[in-house]
């Protein structure tokens, strides 16, 4: 079976001032696959995802979406972002809008879908994710887990080509992590293409087809989750996983 590449990252570098965050990253995400990005805080996971969603301008290299170089200055970046879904660590729901309004904002204003159709689709998605009863609530009145599920629904409502998940459980209380990760596992089973930055190693093992370990702006090790997490070859990876083990996080 040939696998269609959806996102290709080719030699991407990015510096914030003197801080060289990405030092040349190569990565391919193929259709219906999930890649997990792991690594210590500050290793460049979030920056890489933001570069792919064009929320941060890269210094050098290319990002391709379905074969098209979206980091080319002549490329319409709004158009490219419409094809990707992004879920943030801190949810970033719009506090002045209800759950439903949060979900339909993209479909209506970015994709020009009729309101009735957007409402209908939002209702279906919210129902599937067990959130339909909270459709008219404001984000502030929801639990962290519910807010993050709404953020997932909001990203899905635009029917993205791929989902970029940026440590989506890192600001949740431990007992709420499960309800969010369950959904991601479900999406993966349905064939959603995903790139996932995470600190949850058991989750990475469960959902990812490939695990990439980022260290100091480079991918230090990559491969099958069992291999990278179970039998790491690189000293940096071994050190990182040992620290996690000692902290009881593995």
């Amino acid at each position: 079976m040939t696998q269609t590449p959806v996102i290709e990252v080719d030699g991407v570098t990015k510096a914030f001032g003197d801080n060289q965050v990405l030092k040349g990253v190569d990565l391919t995400l193929t259709e219906h696959n999930a890649v997990a990005l792991i690594g210590a805080s500050g290793s460049g996971k979030s920056t890489l995802l933001r570069c792919i969603d064009l929320l941060v301008e890269i210094d050098d290299g290319d990002v391709l979406l379905d074969g098209e170089v979206i980091t080319d200055p002549s490329c319409n970046l709004v158009e490219a972002r419409r094809r990707l879904g992004f879920v943030f660590q801190a949810f970033n729901l719009f506090p002045h809008l209800t759950v439903r309004e949060n979900v339909v904002l993209g479909p209506i204003h970015a994709h020009g879908r009729p309101r009735a159709q957007a409402d209908e689709e939002a209702h279906e998605l919210l129902k599937r994710f067990g959130l339909d009863k909270r459709a008219d609530a404001y984000p502030d009145t929801l639990s962290g887990g519910q807010q993050q599920r709404v953020a997932l629904v909001r990203a899905l409502a635009s029917r993205p080509r791929a989902l970029l998940l940026d440590e989506i459980t890192s600001s949740l209380d431990p007992e709420l992590v499960g309800e969010v990760l369950e959904l991601v596992v479900e999406l993966k089973a349905e064939g959603m293409t995903m790139m996932i930055a995470t600190h949850e190693m058991s989750f990475a093992r469960e959902v990812a087809d490939e695990v990439c370990f980022l260290s100091e702006g480079r991918i230090a090790e990559r491969g099958d989750p069992e291999q990278v997490l179970g039998d790491p070859q690189q000293p940096e990876t071994q050190k990182f996983l040992r620290r996690l083990l000692e902290a009881g996080r593995l």
Partner: peptide
């Protein structure tokens, strides 16, 4: 960032 990620201008 959140608004832009949805594809809004």
């Amino acid at each position: 960032a959140s608004a832009l990620s949805l594809g809004l201008t």
